[in-house]
């Protein structure tokens, strides 16, 4: 940085930040307003759901399963993947179930020809351009909609690119990125407010990137790992998991999950510790936990090596 220029201290007039002092008792939360019920019809079944619910919520109530990819209850819906589209009577186009709020007398079809065609093609578009080998739900969706991504031929464009390993904590393999915007939201306004990554470029070459693609250690990243927590495809992955997958030792069937509380600070985040063969292999946090909503900081997320019995460093000769 440039050196300090001392202006005349007598004229010194720094803006003074003021911290408002708390006054009086903490106000009580406003009473919960009872939400109006909205009557709609899904696949011929009538249902009544509270105002503000989405079509997805209502479908879930009825036990209708809707595929989703970019949706997560803890994030603002971006409705970009379009795998959840449904047919709404009177609408020219299909609408995204994950974000469209119910309105009185909506009549919705979730399994019509049009819906099935669009869902199938969206899945084919994704699977033909992105490596979905570590995306658990996708195989199931593709079977359900009979998707055949290979029909676009051998020469089709994909997002394949070299994996980014530029730090010890997590790897970024954007060949697996479906551009669901979740990591950007988790890094930004929905959780971390760090804004280390953003969507860059346009169109088919749009991608998740730091400024000018600088390596993570040069970026604003604070390694909270909240992006890994929300990534639906394994594009963002713990280095520990990545190394084990490379070595062929990753085996979720042999893993246990233990819920505990982070020992580091007074926030008291809920941790789910994933362990395999006596070693912690990754740490997550439950999405529905009132303190974390799935988010942690670098300590809770990555700072567990001390639990492991470390082999002593060989004494120096």
């Amino acid at each position: 940085m440039s050196e300090i220029v001392i202006t005349n201290p007598a004229n010194f007039d720094a803006p003074r930040p003021t911290i408002p002092l708390p006054r009086g008792p903490i106000p009580a939360a406003p009473p919960k307003i009872a939400r109006r019920s909205i009557d709609i019809k899904i696949d011929g079944q009538a249902i009544s759901v509270p105002e503000g619910s989405t079509i997805l919520d209502a479908a879930k109530e009825l036990g209708i399963e809707t595929p989703t990819l970019c949706y997560l209850e803890s994030l603002t819906p971006v409705n970009v993947c379009r795998v959840c589209v449904v047919e709404l009577e009177g609408s020219r186009t299909l609408v995204p179930a994950c974000s469209r709020k119910v309105e009185p007398n909506m009549s919705i079809k979730t399994d019509s020809e049009r819906v099935r065609l669009s869902r199938r093609i969206v899945l084919e578009f994704l699977a033909s351009s992105v490596d979905l080998s570590t995306a658990p739900n996708m195989r199931e969706y593709m079977d359900r909609y009979d998707a055949h991504p290979e029909r676009f031929g051998e020469t089709r464009a994909t997002v394949a690119q070299p994996i980014k390993i530029d730090n010890d904590l997590y790897v970024r393999d954007y060949s697996k990125c479906v551009l669901c915007y979740k990591c950007v939201e988790a890094c930004g306004v929905d959780a971390q407010n760090t804004f280390a990554i953003a969507v860059a470029g346009r169109g088919f070459s749009a991608r998740i990137a730091t400024e000018f693609d600088v390596p993570l250690p040069d970026s604003a990243c604070v390694y909270c790992g909240n992006c890994i927590g929300v990534c639906p495809t394994g594009a963002l992955m713990f280095k520990s998991e990545y190394d084990m997958r490379q070595a062929g030792t990753w085996d979720e069937a042999r893993q246990t999950q233990t819920d505990t509380i982070c020992p580091y600070c007074g926030v008291g985040c809920d941790l789910t510790v994933h362990q395999q063969d006596g070693k912690i292999v990754r740490v997550t946090s439950p999405l529905d936990h009132s303190v974390t909503h799935g988010n942690l900081c670098i300590k809770g997320r990555f700072g567990w090596q001390y639990v492991q019995i470390q082999p002593a460093d060989p004494p120096e000769e």
């Binding site: 970009v80 993947c81 379009r82 669009s118 351009s129 346009r202 169109g203 088919f204 070459s205």
Partner: peptide, 25 residues
């Protein structure tokens, strides 16, 4: 369209790409 799609949603981002490939073939 391949050049001008914003790239936000899958049907358009990949669709305009596949559409161009298909026409080229």
């Amino acid at each position: 369209f391949h050049h001008e799609t914003c790239g936000q949603c899958v049907p358009c981002r990949v669709g305009v790409t596949r559409q161009e490939e298909s026409l080229l073939r």
